[in-house]
Write a protein that binds this DNA or RNA. Structure first.
Length: 115
DNA sequence: AAATTGACGGTTA
DNA sequence: GTAACCGCCAATT
């Protein structure tokens, strides 16, 4: 059980970054997952924001399907309108309020029954 | 050192 | 269903 404060050592930060990139690389085409799930899978349940930071700044993210990462309510990244286009090209549908239909497209890595 | 910021999550109203 | 808060943590100002 991890207690706050919960600072990350540089080694842990490196491992975290690698895990995040590795998980994102596994998101299937036409599906999405969330920052929170990725952070939890990497072993840091309270660091969803660091997932976003990693994807925003890590050069490796350029070649990964980071457009398949959205918030838990299906919101796409602010200031990145192209993300919606990329997802729609894969068949991911959006609700009228501009959010991904999470009930149909959320993918939970290696835990879901529908893999 | 203190306050602010952000590709977030959860609870409450 | 939406909106407003609050909590969270590393980086930045």
């Amino acid at each position: 059980m991890r207690d706050y404060p919960d600072r990350m050592t540089p080694e842990q930060a490196r491992a975290f970054r690698d895990d995040v990139l590795n998980i994102v690389a596994q998101i299937p085409r036409g599906r999405v997952t969330t920052y929170g799930f990725i952070a939890a899978l990497a072993g840091w349940p309270s660091h969803p924001r660091m997932v976003g930071r990693t994807l925003r700044y890590a050069p490796e993210a350029e070649q990964l399907p980071c457009h398949r990462v959205v918030t838990i309510v299906g919101r796409t990244a602010p200031g990145w309108g192209r993300q919606r286009t990329l997802l729609e090209e894969e068949g991911v549908e959006f609700k009228p309020n501009g959010r991904v239909d999470m009930d149909r497209y959320l993918w939970t890595p290696r835990l879901a029954t529908d893999e």
